[in-house]
């Protein structure tokens, strides 16, 4: 056989394109003809190495390809999500109802009665007794201490720090006056 024929047959055999009978015949021929073997070998090697080189380049990347998942509606997953959302909504509503302020807040009036000190009368008498208006002053202070005061506590907004300071100053000045 000619060199080209040998090479082509070698190529066909390396690529698996020869049927079994033809491959056996070709093997027998090569075994008997050393020169034909020398021609066939380089072609076989070229086929093998070309396949390896291309596989080395392309296979790692193509192996990364994952088959696409066809879009399907997963009803069980949807039901699970719906249940989670419903539970979250119920919990949220319950927590919100507990933490919300009462719908109609009414200002409550608290009567604060200043209890005179145990030794109030005597104490005052001791302090103010030496002054000219000792009796009247003592009586006025005692009346002031026992007088009930009304403090309006509003839920809307409490007195500011400035208001409380002014009230404190007013009381102090009143005490000084008496």
């Amino acid at each position: 056989m000619k060199r080209e024929t040998i090479e082509r047959l070698a190529m066909d055999r390396a690529l698996g394109e020869l049927n079994e009978d033809a491959a056996t015949l070709f093997e027998t021929y090569l075994a008997e003809h050393a020169e034909a073997r020398q021609w066939a070998e380089p072609m076989t090697q070229t086929c093998i190495r070309t396949r390896q080189a291309i596989a080395q380049k392309t296979q790692p990347s193509s192996a990364q390809l994952a088959p696409p998942k066809p879009f399907r509606v997963d009803w069980s997953a949807l039901a699970r999500w719906a249940a989670v959302i419903a539970v979250a909504a119920i919990l949220g509503a319950a927590i919100g109802r507990r933490s919300a302020p009462s719908p109609t807040p009414e200002p409550e009036t608290v009567i604060v009665r200043t209890v005179p000190r145990q030794a109030g009368a005597e104490g005052w008498r001791r302090v103010l007794g030496e002054t000219e208006e000792g009796f009247w002053q003592t009586k006025a202070v005692a009346m002031l201490q026992s007088q009930p005061r009304e403090v309006q506590r509003s839920t809307e907004s409490g007195p500011s720090l400035w208001d409380r300071y002014r009230q404190f100053r007013k009381e102090r000045s009143r005490e000084k006056v008496y």
Partner: peptide, 22 residues
């Protein structure tokens, strides 16, 4: 059709990609 195409894709995608890479 969807199943058929999906199967065809699985059979050939490696080859097509290798060809495109070449």
């Amino acid at each position: 059709f969807q199943t058929e195409f999906d199967q065809f894709w699985r059979q050939t995608c490696g080859k097509v990609r290798a060809y495109m890479f070449c």
